[in-house]
Simulated assay, not measured.
Amino acid sequence: MVIDFLPLLAILAVILGIGGWLLGWQVAYDVLVLDRPPYDPKVKYAGVGWLLWLTGWLAVPSFIGALAGEAVGNVMERRSTGSTPAQAARKLSEEEDLPRPPPSAGSGPGVGP
């Protein structure tokens, strides 16, 4: 689930926050997304620049890949069990103790074409 990724997301936010505080937000973002090298003259602290650059090069793609893998895994599990998206949503709401949405008009027992 997405909650499993929150510690990694918090670490990424702290690294970006430190970079934004020390280098400036635009420079930190540019280094994180690899638009600016960490040895650029606008990068005041090379160590922070290299940390942001490595984070953007390693951690961000792995985080995106993990989320994509989680989504594909959920789809594969749903298909292997033969459940429809509505059944999967009902199962998820039961697991999470979420309130069920009211039935839509025209649905229910005894209603037909």
Results as ranks from 00 to 15, higher is better:
69 G>P: 11
54 L>I: 06
70 E>L: 08
58 L>T: 09
72 V>D: 05
60 V>M: 06
76 M>Y: 03
54 L>G: 10
46 A>P: 10
100 R>D: 00
52 L>D: 01
68 A>H: 00
87 Q>D: 13
78 R>C: 06
49 G>W: 01
71 A>N: 10
68 A>R: 14
92 L>H: 11
73 G>Q: 11
71 A>G: 05
101 P>C: 05
83 S>D: 12
89 A>N: 04
88 A>L: 03
90 R>I: 02
53 W>L: 04
57 W>S: 12
52 L>P: 02
57 W>R: 14
72 V>G: 11
64 I>W: 11
98 L>Y: 03
77 E>A: 13
68 A>G: 12
57 W>P: 00
60 V>P: 04
71 A>D: 04
89 A>D: 07
87 Q>W: 03
75 V>F: 15
70 E>F: 08
66 A>E: 06
56 G>F: 09
53 W>S: 06
73 G>A: 15
51 L>P: 01
76 M>N: 01
93 S>G: 03
71 A>C: 15
96 E>Y: 09
99 P>N: 01
50 W>Y: 12
92 L>I: 14
47 G>S: 07
73 G>H: 13
61 P>N: 00
47 G>W: 11
98 L>D: 08
90 R>N: 11
68 A>I: 08
63 F>M: 14
102 P>S: 03
87 Q>I: 11
66 A>R: 09
88 A>E: 02
49 G>I: 05
97 D>N: 06
71 A>F: 15
58 L>N: 04
74 N>L: 15
82 G>T: 03
50 W>H: 14
78 R>N: 05
98 L>H: 06
77 E>Q: 07
90 R>Q: 14
78 R>A: 02
79 R>A: 10
100 R>I: 02
91 K>C: 02
65 G>D: 10
66 A>D: 09
82 G>E: 00
69 G>A: 12
65 G>V: 05
74 N>Y: 09
95 E>N: 11
101 P>F: 05
78 R>W: 02
100 R>L: 02
77 E>F: 11
45 Y>D: 11
72 V>M: 14
68 A>L: 10
100 R>M: 13
46 A>C: 03
79 R>H: 08
70 E>P: 01
91 K>S: 14
72 V>F: 15
49 G>Q: 01
61 P>W: 01
64 I>P: 02
71 A>H: 15
92 L>T: 14
63 F>E: 08
96 E>H: 04
60 V>S: 04
47 G>E: 11
85 P>G: 09
61 P>G: 01
80 S>G: 06
56 G>W: 06
53 W>T: 01
60 V>Q: 08
56 G>L: 02
68 A>D: 06
100 R>V: 00
64 I>L: 10
77 E>Y: 07
51 L>D: 04
89 A>T: 09
69 G>M: 12
52 L>Q: 03
96 E>P: 03
100 R>P: 04
58 L>C: 10
66 A>L: 07
87 Q>G: 15
59 A>H: 05
96 E>Q: 05
66 A>F: 15
91 K>I: 12
93 S>Q: 07
84 T>I: 07
102 P>R: 10
84 T>A: 15
100 R>Q: 12
101 P>T: 00
75 V>Q: 14
60 V>A: 15
48 V>N: 08
102 P>L: 00
46 A>F: 15
61 P>V: 03
54 L>W: 10
67 L>H: 14
80 S>M: 13
53 W>R: 02
65 G>Y: 14
48 V>C: 07
75 V>G: 10
51 L>G: 00
92 L>D: 06
62 S>Y: 15
66 A>V: 11
